[in-house]
Amino acid sequence: MVAWVVQSTGEIQKLVIKEEISVALQTLNFEFQAETPETMTKEWSHLGVTGSGDLEVLMEKKNLGGKVQAKVVTPVKGFDEVWRRMLGKFVNDCQVGDVSIEINDDNATPIVVYMRLRQAWAESSEKEAE
């Protein structure tokens, strides 16, 4: 990142910070393949709010050769494996394919993640709302 620092002399100095600041958000990327995948009916669907203990999910239909791509942006560290398993469980339970999933998370527990994914999936497959 780039920061501008005002010196005591009044001079403005450009500061380039190369290292990622440790508090920064994390981005995790995953890929999954279900056995008999089916894709969604709508082009895209969105559900949820990035509230404390919650998350938002954006699903988009995308030609991925039957695979599912997932991107998670979260402030929580050390849960990469939990995310991998939870998303994998969802893809497997619902046999999801050719979908890109993007999640903005704020400390959601695994069950909240799973429930939101199931809700988003149900919505992405229902007939167009009035």
């Binding site: 929580v76 849960f79 400390n107 527990t109 695994p110 069950i111």
Partner: peptide, 8 residues
Amino acid sequence: AETFREKL
């Protein structure tokens, strides 16, 4: 019990 509570 929830497998994870608040703040995981």
